[in-house]
Design a protein around this nucleic acid. Structure first.
Length: 376
RNA sequence: GGGGAGAUACCAAAGUGGCCAACUGGGGCAGACUGUAAAUCUGCUGGCGUACGCCUUCGUAGGUUCGAAUCCUGCUCUCCCCA
C-alpha cells in the first residue's frame, strides 16, 4: 500500500492524499461505509459503486468469522469475490466487539474468550489468530487486535488496557510479517492508538506505534462516550506524533461535524455506522441540516429529499414520500435513506478534499458545522 | 313482527361496586443511535400543570349506594337468529 500527500492546507492540519491498494486508489480524506457482515445494510453494491461512489468499505472479522465462517470465505476466494466487490476493503479486527459485547467475553493476556452473540458458542481471539483470520478474509487493509475501553474508563484501567493493546500489537505485527497473503495481492496492517481520554497515555501510544513503521495508523477508543471536545483534543495530541507521511484513520467516527473537525486536525480516513443505522431509523443528514424524516412536519413537504443532494434519490423523491415509506414501514424507506446518507457522507469528504486543495476548507467547514445541528 | 347480544378513549379490546383516568394491542406523536448482537430500542398518547395535584370521561337520561364503567329503570342506536 502506498500513500501520497497531494496537498496540505495552510490554515489547518488538513491534507489531501491518495492511498493506492491492490484493488484501486482511494482519495483522502475518505469516508468508508460499514458492511459488517459483508453487506452495507440495505445497499446494493451497484448503488454503492455508481450512486454513492464508495471507494472502500469495511467488513468485520468477528462477524464474518462467526458467519458465514472462514471455510466459506476461503472457498469463495476471499471476501471481495464472495460479496462481489472489487474495490478496496478494510476489516476491523474484532477489537470493538471486545467493547460492545463486553458481557459475553473474558479478557486475558493471551487474548479474548468470547461467546457468540448468535448461538452462545465459545470462541477465542488472539492477536495471532485474528491476523490469520484476516488473511483468510483477504481485506486490503487489516486492523490490529486491540482492546477498546469505554470512554468512562479510569486512568488505571486505561493504562493496563494500553499495556495489553501494545503487547497485542507486537504479536499482531510478528504474526502478520511472518505470514503471506492467500490471494496474490498485498495486504497491510494498521496499528491502533488507544489511551482513552488521557493525553499522556495517548502520547505514549502514538509514540509506540510510530516506531513500528507501518503503512498507516488508526486512532481507536474515541466516540465511545466521551465529549466531542475531548475526542478532538485526543486527535490533536496523537496527530502531532504520528508520522505526517502516513494516513491516519479515526475509527468509528462519526457525525458529519465530527468528521470535519477531525479532517481539520489531520485525519484522513473515517468509518461509522451512523449514516446507515441512523438512516434506517429515519435520521437524514442533508445540506439543509439534520432531520427526522418520520416527523409529521414532512407529511406534506413535496420538496426533494435534499435539494443540494449529490445522490440520485435526493432529486427524484420528495420528503413527503420518504416519510410515507417510513411511516408505512416499507423497506424502501430505510434503503433510500441509507443511500442518501452515504451519498451525503461521500459528498462531504469529497467537498472537503476540493476545499482543501483550493484553500477554502477552513471557512467552508466552520459554516457547515453550524448548519449540521438537528433542525428544531 | 318475535327472540337474543351489545354500546368503554383515535381503532380494536379488557375491566362487571372502591386497588380505574381505566389492562393490552394497533394507530398517532416524539426521542435515542458514532471501529453495527439494531430495517432496532425508549418515552408519551382525556384536559390543565414541571410536579404533589385538580378537573371532565366508559351510548343517553334518571335512580340505588358512603362510593358506579361496573347494580336498577326509561330512551336511543348497533349486531345476530327466527318469521
Amino acid at each position: 500500500m502506498q500513500f501520497t500527500i497531494n496537498s496540505l492546507d495552510t490554515n489547518s492540519k488538513a491534507r489531501t492524499g491518495t492511498i493506492k491498494t491492490a484493488h484501486g486508489e482511494i482519495p483522502t480524506p475518505i469516508f468508508m461505509p460499514v458492511g459488517t457482515v459483508g453487506s452495507v445494510k440495505g445497499i446494493n453494491p451497484r448503488e454503492l459503486e455508481q450512486d454513492i461512489n464508495a471507494k472502500i468499505i469495511l467488513g468485520n472479522t468477528y462477524h464474518l468469522y462467526l458467519r458465514p465462517g472462514l471455510e466459506v470465505i476461503e472457498a469463495a476466494g476471499g471476501l471481495h469475490k464472495f460479496i462481489s466487490w472489487d474495490r478496496p476493503i478494510l476489516t476491523d479486527s474484532g477489537g470493538y466487539q471486545v467493547f460492545s459485547l463486553a458481557e459475553n467475553r473474558k479478557l486475558k493476556p493471551e487474548g479474548a474468550h468470547f461467546r457468540s452473540h448468535i448461538d452462545g458458542s465459545k470462541h477465542f481471539f488472539s492477536p495471532e489468530n485474528v491476523m490469520d483470520i484476516q488473511r483468510v478474509i483477504g481485506a486490503d487493509i487489516i486492523m490490529a487486535f486491540d482492546e477498546c475501553p469505554p470512554g468512562t474508563a479510569t486512568y488505571d484501567y486505561a493504562k493496563k488496557s494500553l499495556d495489553l493493546t501494545e503487547n497485542w500489537l507486537d504479536r499482531c505485527i510478528k504474526r502478520f510479517d511472518e505470514t503471506e497473503p492467500l490471494y496474490n495481492y498485498e495486504q497491510t496492517l494498521f496499528p491502533i492508538v488507544q489511551g482513552c481520554v488521557y493525553p499522556d497515555l495517548r502520547r505514549r501510544a502514538a509514540e509506540f506505534v510510530a516506531t513500528k513503521n507501518r503503512d498507516g495508523y488508526a486512532i481507536g477508543g474515541l466516540s465511545v462516550g466521551e465529549p466531542a471536545e475531548v475526542m478532538y483534543q485526543m486527535v490533536e495530541v496523537v496527530n502531532d506524533i504520528l508520522p505526517i507521511e502516513k494516513p491516519r484513520y479515526l475509527m468509528g467516527v462519526g457525525t458529519p461535524d465530527n468528521i470535519l473537525e477531525a479532517i481539520d486536525r489531520g485525519v484522513d480516513m473515517f468509518d461509522c455506522v451512523m449514516p446507515t443505522r441512523n438512516g434506517r431509523n429515519g435520521m437524514l443528514f442533508t445540506s439543509e441540516g439534520i432531520i427526522n424524516i418520520r416527523n409529521k412536519r414532512w407529511s406534506n413537504d413535496f420538496s426533494p429529499i435534499d435539494p443540494q443532494g449529490a445522490s440520485f434519490v435526493d432529486q427524484r423523491f420528495t420528503k413527503a414520500y420518504l416519510r410515507h415509506l417510513f411511516i408505512s414501514k416499507e423497506m424502501l424507506g430505510p434503503q433510500l435513506a441509507s443511500i442518501h446518507n452515504l451519498g451525503f457522507y461521500l459528498w462531504l469528504v469529497g467537498e472537503a478534499r476540493r476545499r482543501i486543495e483550493d484553500g477554502t476548507f477552513k471557512g467552508w467547514k466552520d459554516q457547515l458545522v453550524k448548519k449540521l445541528v438537528v433542525r428544531l
